[in-house]
């Protein structure tokens, strides 16, 4: 009979990912590539917002933007970005997993031409729970909450709203048709994270997208200096 022994570990299961995420953040910082992790529930308008946003950033600055799409399957989002914004987009498949972690993000970056990219936007899997738990190595976490989802979401998904520095409220053209209370929503977002920046937009009509683009360009300039 082989010897049996207990090995004490006492380590968070996320610690490995957090180390990798910090390493990735540092590598990208040296390359002056800003990584934005964009999250939302399915259908909140991540891809449509990205197309409008990238086109606006292109009009306002000379920054090079690259997109990484993460989905369980298909390449519809990467195709849409290529067609809609005319930039390079890569599709990552998570193989059934509901989120991206730092290692998957790094592998994605290794497979895309982003040496001279200023901004890499990671469009995470549509989900308000799991992506919040895994640090991808991003320099900024943003999420999109769309009007039809309701203003109470910050109360229901605490972690997502705690970790996001930027909350984009999309589909504001639908406000007259829904019981969405913007003041309440802002109150709930700040209840979770008092420093969160809130930008209301409509990706379809383009309303507010210039404000969003300017905010990100400002963040990029801060990051580069």
């Amino acid at each position: 009979m082989d010897e049996v022994k207990i090995i004490e570990i006492k380590k968070s299961v996320f610690s490995e990912n957090e180390i990798k995420a910090d390493e990735l953040r540092e590598i990208l910082k040296k390359k002056k590539t800003f990584l934005l992790n964009l999250m939302s529930s399915p259908g909140a308008g991540k891809t449509t917002t990205l197309i409008k946003l990238i086109n606006t950033i292109k009009e306002k600055s000379a920054y090079k933007v690259v997109v990484m799409e993460a989905d369980i399957d298909s390449d519809v989002d990467a195709k849409k970005i290529k067609e809609g914004a005319g930039i390079e987009a890569i599709q990552l498949h998570t193989g059934g997993m509901c989120h991206l972690d730092a290692e998957m993000t790094k592998q994605g970056l290794d497979n895309i031409d982003c040496e001279d990219a200023d901004l890499v936007i990671l469009e995470n899997v549509g989900n308000l729970v799991c992506p919040a738990e895994f640090d991808t190595g991003a320099h900024l976490c943003a999420m999109i909450l769309s009007v039809p989802e309701g203003h109470d979401k910050p109360l229901k998904y605490p972690l997502m709203f705690e970790i996001c520095d930027l909350v984009i409220i999309n589909k504001i053209d639908c406000l007259p048709f829904f019981d969405f209370n913007m003041a309440k929503c802002e109150e709930y977002v700040h209840f979770r994270n008092e420093n969160a920046k809130i930008i209301p937009i409509c990706a379809k009509t383009g309303e507010g997208v210039d404000v969003l683009a300017e905010y990100l360009i400002g963040k990029l300039e801060e990051f580069k200096n």
Binding site: V4, K5, I6, I7, E8, I9, K10, K11, S12, V13
Partner: peptide, 9 residues
Amino acid sequence: QINLKNIKV
């Protein structure tokens, strides 16, 4: 937290 406390081998 989700901590791996120990393992028995």
